[in-house]
Design a protein around this nucleic acid. Sequence first.
DNA 1: TATGCCTGATTGTCGGACACTAGAACAAAG
DNA 2: CTTTGTTCTAGTGTCCGACAATCAGGCATA
Lengths: 290, 290
Amino acid sequence: MSDDNEALIDDLSRSIQPRLSDACGALGGLAFWPGGGVGLTSKPIQVSYAYQQIAEEIEAQILRGELKPGDQLPGEAELGTLFGVTRSTVREGLRQLESDGLVHRPSPRRMEVTVPQADQLTTRAGRAMALMKVTFRELWEVTMVTEPLAARIAAQRATADEIEALQQVHADLLAAEGKMARTIELDQQFHTQIGDMARNRVLGLAREPISLLLFRGFAQIAPFAPKFYKRQIEAHSNIIAALRDRDADRAEKWARMHIEDFWRGAQIAGLEDEIALNARALSGQTERQT
Amino acid sequence: MSDDNEALIDDLSRSIQPRLSDACGALGGLAFWPGGGVGLTSKPIQVSYAYQQIAEEIEAQILRGELKPGDQLPGEAELGTLFGVTRSTVREGLRQLESDGLVHRPSPRRMEVTVPQADQLTTRAGRAMALMKVTFRELWEVTMVTEPLAARIAAQRATADEIEALQQVHADLLAAEGKMARTIELDQQFHTQIGDMARNRVLGLAREPISLLLFRGFAQIAPFAPKFYKRQIEAHSNIIAALRDRDADRAEKWARMHIEDFWRGAQIAGLEDEIALNARALSGQTERQT
DNA sequence: TATGCCTGATTGTCGGACACTAGAACAAAG
DNA sequence: CTTTGTTCTAGTGTCCGACAATCAGGCATA
């Protein structure tokens, strides 16, 4: 494998500034400000550790295209000699890259460059939103534009097979009546699937974590609004029908009404400015890529 | 500090399964499939390393709320004894959490729990979109709904000060005519600022990386469309005016026209299905939090 | 050809070590 | 009493060396 990596090795070997830790505390010429304590330009003075530099250097080479997805990284020991640091230090850097999603490990022996996976970003964003305690209102306001957009584009681009698969999810959803957890799961899947049909990765990335959180509210709304479930189901049917007819306007309209209706339910349940999700509920879903 | 951490320590000490590495390769009862090679349920068989378990355990406790933002983590050595692993192993886990944004280091001596920072997520998402080579079309389709939404809500919620600040950015933008890099920067800031005025963190999270990438196209459009720059500026003026009047509909309308116009420019420049950004361009901006 | 075995390279984890520094406690000076 | 300087200690970044487990690949065997 060393033949294949010759080039990589050459590229990677921008050796780390020797003995960074020594230079850590060195605060770069901090100008004295005569006007008193206030107004001092508070520069962050960020220290840079060796393991960070390792991660940054490799990351930069990935972004610059010198390392492409699929390329295999040299061994840890080799990286160590290349950068002039110990294997332990290299490892810490690799862990960062790993959880950044820029490298992954197809086999425990190989470490290769990859592009961040969508589901990983979704988890990340969802976690962040939960931790920053976003409200249903915030989620809803955005969903109010993303889902109709997804439906509209999906009507133009979805394949017949995809629409069929969506129909199947809808059927499963009907069959799951009464089982709340399953209902929510299938409801989310329904929307995710429409999102995928739009063939827009940006939209997919943006809407997924949001709808994931928002539609959990289902469980909190249903008990308060008897007809809520039925209306939601009907909306789904209408969306599917519109998709079948390739009627973008109608698909968009029904999606909008669907989300509007969701909001009415949320209002009845008094959820408007409630925190959408105590992060605890997400704790089970941590899926760290390996 | 050990007094304050007594509770944390108790909580944290769910000790890691002893000797995980030994159980690594153990492939869980793989059922033999008599029908031939095809149809075998290819289970991922994910091994779990000690450093991952450390990260996951601490992460879970953060999500569960047992560790709250601002809490200080015990020292590495202490964590090591709590989990029953070496300090090196703990460190690798901490590096993951660090780049996940769940913990950070206000001072090189303290490691405390925090909620993921928005700008970090933005960087992450932007990098991912660049690496997956999204097209201008994908970005534009989503921007076409996010920016009008941001403008609409901003018209309802922005403070007078914020509108004033926006006006200032606009003035700077006018003054920067001809300087492309600066123009793009200020244009992005203009939109970001409107996004912030909407006081919707979900919207902010969703739209920021997208607009960041999309509006870079400015540089590629301007040379092809002489009047493009002027029209964009005018649209900005009109948006500000609408915000001043608290006219949500008009703000939304102008934002939409603004983005539509951007698309016309993109068409003239032939960018529709071009890759929005070679990731290289992002490589300079890596800002790893410390 | 397909199977089993052996070997080298790589990885996960360990334990110990050292220099350096932030933070606190303390002493001296205005 | 506040401000400045000193000392000490715990904790961090980095290094070193080591070991068991495992994967990849070559080789021998059936």
